[in-house]
Design a protein around this nucleic acid. Structure first.
Length: 581
RNA sequence: GCCCUCGUAGCUCAGUGGAUAGAGCACAGGUUUCCUAAACCUGGUGUCGAAGGUUCGAUUCCUUCCGGGGGCACCA
């Protein structure tokens, strides 16, 4: 990836070469495991350290400390000569490197040359995949709430990171616009619509009670007037008796209205999607297989599964033998009533994604779908090419909304919810995005609205943004000719705070890789906090606008590199990097 | 009952097969003739839930147990 020594990969590669030589010279016919570098917390452990000798010693048949000594000497006699002052062997066999100022200046030079592309494409070409990431994917029956904001923020940040490191990423929203819940939604909307027209139509017990449906009903009246009045009068107050064609129209209108709200809200939250796939379209198309009356992707899926001899009928329903692939019990695909289950749709949906050529699929689901994982995995494995590793199911945990430290419960049907729009209104997009990806996705997150509203230093997003704004301010104050972007780095001594900052910058690519591989945007979140802290310390101790032109130019270069990295990192989390605060 | 997940400082949580396990908050005190004080500096506590196992080395990997949360529909 790098062809010189001025980043951690380059250093590691040169140490690897030295280690291979050392092993060959010792006559040992062994492959050394990859050399990994760490940045020790303690200065006495050097600038960079590696445990390569310890992990290689056994298979090389050498004592760890002896091997470390030999590796250090060999490397210093070659590649290390120009960038490293000295090395030490410590503890059970660590090799600690004490790098020269020259290495740090070279590192800065590289950073400035890479600019906004620093960290881009760190994933080796062989590991890059055509990926589909599906997230949010809520059924269009009501506003997005705080939990969805978390999945949206997490999913979006993950997509941005995956794409940045080198994957080909398609972001997809699956619209569950089919089935029982949509029927209840349509009935609830019809009831509210009737009420607005003065009828006594009742929202069904199992329906959606939220006040937002009253507003939607007003919009529906504005759109179609009293077109459905007669139909409602005929069945009032029981909307479940509504004729199917009327219900279908109202349902469809409601779906589109809610979807329009989703788009608007997600746009505000800076979460774009490439593809919106409605569940209902999976049923569209001729029944080419002639299979059980279902066409489209659903029909194809049924044919595939039947071909695997995994379908059977029992008690009037059609079952899939998911137990054959590790599920607890078999699952129904087609109900006694002849209606398909959500599960069947989902199977067809994943088949469709494979048809579209994705090498890897990630679904991000809410915690309430937890128990659904084994059956989905089983069904996916049952479909050609029978490769469970191509589907990755990520379960996101919930958000506890706190107000003044008190938990606030939410229920969509009851209508007692805090919407994403409310959240953005209350704390702003930047704070929301930053806080929502601050924790690992698999742990419950407490979000204290009162705390997040405070625009002070308790709010971690400002800490990072402030570092960026401060740098911008410094660079605005630079005198003419203090060194253009990317100018040669002057040969000045590199102080401890500058070194610390440059080491922090050097970690960025591996942080991105870890965040991508572990599906963990919070790794980046944590890193940005550390980088900002390192900058604030530097700022306090190293004056950029100094009497010495070379020092000014060098430190301005460091500032530029930090600014770029902060901006890149914040951007990957969907947070703005302000030039002034 | 079965499955998943979490258990780390007073609180909220990071992290890791390596050398003395971290951050923020909270608490106390200090820093500004100087590029943004939304900042910096100084104060300290941990049986890394428990017990076994693998390893040169385990908080990290494996097993069992305990505790919190979630899930176990012909809903989505």
């Amino acid at each position: 990836m790098s062809d010189d020594l001025y980043d951690l990969n380059g250093l590691a590669a040169s140490l690897q070469a030295a280690l291979d030589q050392e092993l060959a010279a010792g006559g040992a016919d062994v492959d050394a495991p990859p050399v990994e570098l760490d940045l020790p917390a303690r200065p006495e452990h050097g600038d960079v350290t590696t445990n390569a000798a310890m992990v290689t010693a056994r298979r090389a048949g050498r004592a760890p400390r002896d091997l470390a000594e030999a590796l250090g000497a060999r490397w210093m006699a070659g590649a290390g000569a120009g960038v490293c002052e000295r090395f030490e062997v410590a503890g059970p066999g660590f090799l600690n490197l004490f790098l020269d100022d020259a290495w740090y200046r070279g590192a800065l030079d590289r950073l400035l040359a890479e600019g906004a592309d620093y960290g881009r494409g760190v994933l080796p070409a062989a590991r890059r995949l055509k990926m589909n990431v599906e997230f949010v994917s809520v059924n269009p029956t009501g506003p997005l709430h705080v939990g969805h904001a978390r999945y949206a923020s997490y999913g979006d940040a993950l997509c941005r990171i995956l794409a940045f490191v080198g994957h080909d990423v398609t972001r997809e929203f699956y619209v569950n616009d089919y089935g029982t819940q949509m029927t209840r939604f349509g009935q609830s909307l019809a009831a509210r619509y009737g009420q607005r027209l003065g009828l006594d139509t009742q929202v069904p017990d199992e329906g959606y009670q939220g006040a937002y449906l009253l507003e939607l009903a007003d919009d529906l009246i504005a759109a179609v007037g009293d077109r459905y009045r007669d139909a409602l009068v005929a069945i009032a107050p029981d909307v479940t008796a509504l004729p199917v064609d009327v219900l279908a129209e109202i349902k469809l209108w409601g779906r589109d209205a809610i979807l329009a709200q989703f788009r608007a809200t997600l746009e505000r939250l800076r979460v774009p999607f490439d593809v919106w796939t409605p569940e209902s379209t999976l049923y569209e198309g001729e029944d080419e297989s002639g299979h059980r009356g279902f066409g489209g992707e659903v029909g194809k899926s049924l044919a595939d599964l039947d071909g695997e001899s995994l379908l059977y009928e029992k008690e009037g329903a059609v079952w899939l033998s998911t137990t054959r692939y590790g599920d607890d019990k078999d699952r129904v695909l087609i109900r006694q009533t002849g209606d398909p289950t959500y599960f069947l749709s989902d199977i067809a949906y994943h088949r469709d994604k494979m048809d579209r050529g994705f090498e890897h699929m990630i679904d991000i689901w809410g915690a309430d779908h937890h128990g659904y994982v084994p059956r989905m995995k089983a069904a996916f494995t049952a479909l050609p090419p029978h490769d469970p590793d191509r589907l990755e199911l990520i379960i996101g945990q919930l958000v506890n909304l706190l107000e003044s430290g008190e938990a606030r419960r939410m229920s969509k049907r009851r209508g007692d919810i805090v919407t994403v729009d409310d959240l953005i209104e209350a704390i702003g997009v930047d704070a929301a995005r930053f806080l929502l990806v601050g924790r690992s996705h698999d742990t419950t997150l407490d979000l204290d609205i009162d705390l997040a509203v405070q625009q002070n230093n308790q709010n971690p997003v400002y800490y990072v943004q402030y570092a960026h704004a401060r740098i911008c301010s410094i660079l605005r104050n630079l005198p003419e000719g203090a060194g253009p972007e990317g100018a040669a780095v002057p040969a000045v001594p590199v102080g401890p705070h500058e070194r610390a900052l440059l080491r922090a910058l050097a970690r960025f690519p591996e942080v991105l890789l870890a965040a991508a591989d572990q599906r963990a945007p919070h790794r980046l979140h944590g890193y940005l906090g550390e980088l900002a802290a390192e900058f604030h310390v530097f700022y306090r101790h190293c004056r950029v606008l100094s009497d010495d032109a070379d020092t000014t130019a060098f430190r301005a270069g460091v500032c530029r590199a930090v600014r770029t990295t902060l901006a890149t990192g914040l951007g990957l989390l969907g947070v703005e990097a302000p030039e002034a605060m």
